[in-house]
Design a protein around this nucleic acid. Structure first.
Lengths: 194, 194
DNA sequence: CAACAATGTAGGCGCCGACAACAATGCTGT
DNA sequence: ACAGCATTGTTGTCGGCGCCTACATTGTTG
């Protein structure tokens, strides 16, 4: 048997990584602190040193998820250089890709944002917010989006992305329809009445 | 002590009603079969005669939720007689109202639709689908919605409503902003000047 | 190097979902 | 009327979980 040292050395990160995998593969209902402890080879109470309770672990997962989502959004936007509409489509595609790959995590992220959110979740969400906000503001400045209150436009864009993600996740639509949906939504938002 | 009869008489309905209340007031994590049994004044194993497992109860809640949602949508559409855009706004408002009042239930409903959905859930969802489908088709026939594949338009409408609901639920926006969002979304979809 | 902080272990409590064995009640055919 | 059966309760049990306390080991710092 592997003669483990008394101290794991990186238990917190190991728990988070394993939790994210379990969340993706088996869903949130299969996620238990005791099981994570077993898989990390520590006792059932060890996780408590790093997460006050189960919700604290979920909050940490949500915060990490928002950070990763903002990274993927930024990368997608930077890679799409053709034109503004392509950027918008790339961002939406990246969002939906995240949502379909980590459906349970996304659900958790928005659940964590509901009420009494931890500071880490709030900060991490701010990064995602900034990406979408920048996208909308650049679109308005370039004249690709209709002018008006950027707050309202940003909310509308956010809602549309989130809605498409929800439909994709619920299995109501297949992959091809998702791409159509994204294209339709982007066309609708950019083709404003002149 | 209340000398209860051996048979409750309407346990299944009582459990569902109490479950819906608990879901609304305390969230899904507080929902336990044993607690429902206690509140109904029966033994901890009695619910098992009506729901094979916890998931079966959740499925039944989801099915009932879809039925109620379709009723509320139909009522809202029927009451809005001014014009088509008013109908659309009324339907969206009814949807968001349902979502904010029963956030946990709506989440549950879409979770239940994910994978291996029970027959009851599928049928109940069909009623909601029919309402939205009728709304879109009538809009196209009246020339209020742009022509094209009604499937795609319906999906777009559904996604937008679901997205707004998600934002409303997550507490990211307040009530006034929600109304603005609905108005913006409806205006965008009907392509009407504002 | 002694005190202390950080991190892990062992055990226990109450709750939960699921299951099995048994009991009371309602229903149906004769 | 009533015997037999299906329905719907009850009690008891099992393993798992989150959370808590007391204790053990290790790293750090004055």
């Amino acid at each position: 048997m592997a003669d483990r040292p008394y101290h794991h050395g990186n238990l917190r990160a190991a728990l988070l990584a394993e939790a994210e995998r379990t969340l993706r593969e088996d869903g949130i209902e299969q996620l238990s602190l005791r099981d994570l402890a077993r898989q990390a080879g520590v006792s059932h109470a060890a996780p408590r040193r790093h997460f006050a309770d189960r919700q604290a672990l979920l909050d940490a997962l949500a915060a990490a998820g928002f950070l990763r989502l903002s990274d993927e959004l930024r990368a997608a936007i930077e890679d799409a250089t053709a034109n503004y509409e392509a950027q918008l489509r790339a961002a939406a595609t990246a969002y939906i890709h995240f949502a379909t790959r980590d459906a349970a995590l996304l659900e958790l992220m928005f659940a964590a944002k509901r009420g009494e959110q931890s500071a880490a979740v709030r900060v991490a969400f701010g990064h995602v917010f900034a990406e979408v906000d920048g996208l909308v503001c650049r679109g308005q400045q370039a004249g690709k989006l209709r002018p008006g209150d950027p707050d309202r436009l940003r909310l509308l864009l956010f809602a549309t992305m989130q809605g498409i993600a929800s439909l994709a996740t619920s299995g109501a639509v297949d992959t091809r329809q998702i791409d159509e949906l994204i294209a339709d939504a982007v066309a609708l938002i950019t083709n404003s009445p002149h």
